[in-house]
């Protein structure tokens, strides 16, 4: 269950934003991606999640092992908290709804409409989806946005438990989660500079 990335280049809107990126994420470890806005954190995570193709390089992720959480939580406003989670539990073929509700402290909200949740509560519900997925590798894009300090601590504890159980996590975040076992990877040095890469990408984009 090891994620291996070698010499990866990713593009956004036809422009290569990151290149020459290599890292390994073994089980039980977390990797925090840092870098200024626009450096390509989201693009990298979307590429790893398989939503867009890589320009160059290789990504090796064991099949059926990755759970991706984007900026948006993918909640349905007219479903209740428990129904939202039950849907994803059925999609991933797990029955972990109760564990996830307990894990993200959502038990009391289980019968509330997702529409009536606060931004932080919605975020917690979005993150609870990771728990019902039962997948070992978490790829998280800004997971702590709109969470209060207590919820950030709760989330850090959830991630720590996930790592202790042999999972791994790749996070793009600006906040210090207090994860001692997390390594930090600054993406700034991997910014694409080579002109050839840019032109090539633009050239191909013209034929899409």
């Amino acid at each position: 269950m090891e994620m291996r990335v070698s010499d990866l280049a990713v593009q956004r809107g036809g422009i290569v934003v990151l290149e020459g990126l290599s890292f390994t994420l073994p089980p039980g470890r977390a990797l925090v991606l840092r870098g200024p806005n626009g450096v390509g954190k989201t693009t990298l995570l979307r590429t790893l999640a398989g939503l867009q193709p890589a320009v160059a390089g290789e990504v090796s992720i064991p099949a059926e092992s990755l759970a991706y959480a984007s900026h948006a939580d993918g909640l349905k406003a007219t479903l209740t908290v428990a129904e939202n989670l039950a849907f994803w539990a059925a999609v991933y073929g797990t029955g972990l709804v109760e564990d996830a509700l307990a894990g993200m402290n959502l038990r009391e909200l289980r019968n509330r409409w997702a529409a009536s949740l606060s931004a932080g509560q919605k975020r917690r519900l979005g993150l609870a989806r990771l728990l019902v997925s039962g997948r070992p590798i978490w790829v998280l894009d800004e997971p702590t946005v709109s969470l209060d300090a207590a919820s950030v601590a709760l989330f850090a504890a959830v991630v720590r438990a996930h790592l202790a159980a042999g999972g791994s996590a790749l996070l793009a975040t600006h906040i210090d989660l207090g994860l001692d076992e997390a390594e930090v990877l600054d993406l700034t040095p991997f910014r694409a500079t080579s002109r050839a890469a840019r032109q090539d990408a633009g050239f191909q984009e013209a034929f899409l």
């Binding site: 991706y68 984007s70 948006a72 993918g74 909640l75 994803w88 991933y92 989806r129």
Partner: peptide
């Protein structure tokens, strides 16, 4: 589904 992000999540799900 596209607007609330669930299409992204469906695309990365086992379905």
């Amino acid at each position: 589904d596209f607007e609330d992000g669930s299409l992204d999540l469906l695309a990365t799900s086992p379905l």
